[in-house]
């Protein structure tokens, strides 16, 4: 490996392909010179002596989907978990560098990771509904646990509809969240993440534990959610990255090798390693 950090910044001026982006939505980023919703500058993550993420710099524009691809162990999950400070909980983990959401540095002093995580929601690889809670309670969990008032019933219905789960569960909202099938549980977890109204949604291989039909539903959902949220999705499946994302970032051995519009990454990558990976020569 070359010691020089592999850094790729998306040129800010370059228009990002936005599929059916609504025009009435005002741009969420305030300054015109920083159009990124999420911006990562020289991010490094260490687990004790292991340098897991090396000098990653990239940006994600509002209401776009960034797919993070790469072979197992390349740091995809480690990377997106740095975006809502989930590494704070891991003993021995250390994060250096800066992550901005709307221009605000998440790792600056005085930033409360608890409040931050309400703005940056997360969906995990395995569906993890709370086993002691009903379907309804699971969706409302972010509200009840945080003591947020309001019309929970309405929010729950809205989020379940957004997650395309309402019609399947509306007659059994009091049943256990764990009584659902795997794909339904994952959509339940998406609804739960949406209920606290995040601006950014991180998805860590959300469909890897699901069958193809459930996967298709989740992907369809990502298309719809993109109209409101900025999404970063880690995926093992290059087909999935091609289907759901506007931009793709290729990680290898903790480094960001290349990032660009998805079509370009898959058809005309600049880097040899990217090409080898997307054409199936390794990984």
């Amino acid at each position: 490996m070359s010691p020089a950090p592999a850094v790729q910044i998306m040129p800010p001026e370059k228009p990002v392909p936005m599929v059916s982006a609504p025009q009435q939505q005002p741009p969420l980023a305030p300054e015109p010179e920083t159009p990124f919703k999420v911006e990562v500058q020289d991010l490094n993550v260490y687990f004790r002596a292991n340098h897991a993420i090396r000098h990653v710099t990239l940006g994600v524009k509002p209401q776009t989907v960034l797919a993070v691809i790469g072979p197992s162990g390349c740091g995809k999950s480690t990377f997106i978990r740095a975006l809502n400070r989930m590494h704070d909980l891991v003993p021995g983990a250390r994060v250096e560098g800066r992550v901005f959401v709307d221009g605000e540095d998440l790792y600056a002093r005085g930033i409360d990771p608890v409040l931050l995580r309400r703005r940056v929601g997360m969906v995990f690889q395995r569906p993890n509904p709370f086993p002691t809670m009903s379907i309804y309670e699971n969706v409302a969990a972010g509200l009840t646990l945080n003591g947020i008032g309001g019309n929970h019933a309405e929010i729950v219905e809205h989020c379940l509809r957004q997650a395309a789960l309402w019609d399947e569960v509306k007659d059994r909202l009091r049943h256990a969240g764990t009584s659902l099938s795997g794909g339904q549980q994952q959509r339940l977890c998406i609804a739960r993440a949406l209920a606290v109204e995040p601006e950014v949604l991180l998805m860590d291989e959300p469909a890897s534990a699901l069958d193809p039909i459930a996967t298709a539903k989740i992907e369809e959902l990502i298309h719809e959610l993109k109209e409101k949220y900025t999404i970063v999705i880690v995926t093992h499946s290059m087909q999935q990255a091609a289907r759901v994302s506007d931009n793709t970032a290729f990680f290898y051995l903790g480094e960001l090798i290349e990032m660009g519009p998805t079509a370009q990454i898959f058809t005309n990558p600049r880097e040899r390693r990217t090409e080898d990976y997307v054409t199936g020569k390794f990984g």
């Binding site: 809502n84 989930m86 909980l89 608890v114 409040l115 931050l116 995580r117 309400r118 703005r119 929601g121 997360m122 995990f124 993890n128 709370f130 969990a141 972010g142 646990l145 945080n146 977890c189 739960r192 993440a193 606290v196």
Partner: peptide, 8 residues
């Protein structure tokens, strides 16, 4: 993790 990710 699920709970923390909800900002709890």
């Amino acid at each position: 993790e699920a709970s923390l990710a909800l900002g709890v």
